[in-house]
Design a protein around this nucleic acid. Structure first.
Length: 257
DNA sequence: TCAGTTGTTTATAT
DNA sequence: AATATAAACAACTG
């Protein structure tokens, strides 16, 4: 789940419940998920409000910076007064007034504590601009030198940060662009349409903190196993691996040519 | 039992 | 040099 819209939801969640509270301690329930080892110095600090870059969530805590990545199954969970720990809680920030748990079933994500700007830069310095900050001209300039498929480019975090498999499929579907199409064959019109749809998909999904489970979204029709019908025209959706990821598209709305 | 899974990194191939 | 592909990471679902 965790792509830009999801992490935006986690950001709001952290800021609503946990930001501004004093850190009493940090429990490394699963030691390996605190990727940088020590939590020394955090106790007594105030947890700052979070910002987001791409799929990363970042918050200051005293002189340190806390960074979280949610991998495939990560999320945050707040319990106001001593709620039970969940089996997948990996790192728990025990705060004044409640606990913020970094929960991750599959453990592809993690929590990093950086004490120098250099360390932050090592983690997120290679990311491209956040997808929300990319205007139409930026989009054109970023894509101009790229050679591969639309899907590979939009998924590349060093090009544009925040778009994942589901968002990219959703964007291509709205823009009526086949995700496997080479960028060399995308003219200005379709390129601008991709940009407009990127903005629209983000705008519409961010308030939900996810791609909303509502009619009119491709993701609602893709189903885990078998693809459903195109929400726009009813055509049976196609499914194949493109740029290494399971990709769903409508063969009628998004023709290959 | 086995294939499949929203992300990233690394190695290898083209 | 830039892209593409596959595997690995870990744990669960259908």
């Amino acid at each position: 789940m965790p792509e830009l819209s999801d992490v935006e939801g986690f950001k709001r969640y952290l800021n609503r419940h946990a930001a501004g509270r004093r850190i009493e301690r940090v429990d490394r329930v699963d030691r390996s998920m605190l990727r940088t080892g020590s939590v020394r110095g955090l106790a007594g600090c105030e947890l700052g409000s979070a910002r987001r870059h791409g799929k990363w969530l970042i918050a200051e805590a005293g002189l340190a910076t806390v960074l979280m990545h949610f991998g495939m199954t990560g999320l945050l969970h707040w319990s106001g007064n001593g709620g039970a720990r969940h089996v997948h809680d990996r790192v728990v920030f025990v705060l004044d007034g409640g606990e913020l748990a970094y929960r991750d079933m599959r453990k592809f994500g993690g929590v990093w504590i950086a004490r120098e700007a250099r360390r932050v830069d090592e983690l997120i310095g290679s990311l491209g601009p956040d997808a929300l900050e990319v205007d139409r001209d930026d989009f054109r300039e970023l894509l101009a030198p790229r050679r591969g498929s639309v899907k590979a480019a939009l998924m590349d975090q060093t090009l544009i940060a925040g778009l994942g498999n589901l968002l990219v499929d959703e964007i291509c579907w709205r823009a009526r662009v086949h995700p496997g199409l080479a960028l060399a064959r995308i003219g200005p019109e379709r390129r601008d349409r991709l940009h407009a749809c990127m903005r629209a998909v983000l705008r519409d999904s961010i308030p939900h903190g996810r791609i909303p489970p509502e009619p009119g979204w491709l993701t609602g029709a893709r189903d885990d196993r078998r693809s459903g019908a195109c929400p726009r025209c009813g055509t049976r959706l196609r499914r194949a691996t493109i740029a290494g990821r399971t990709t769903v598209w409508c063969p009628r709305c998004q023709p290959k040519r």
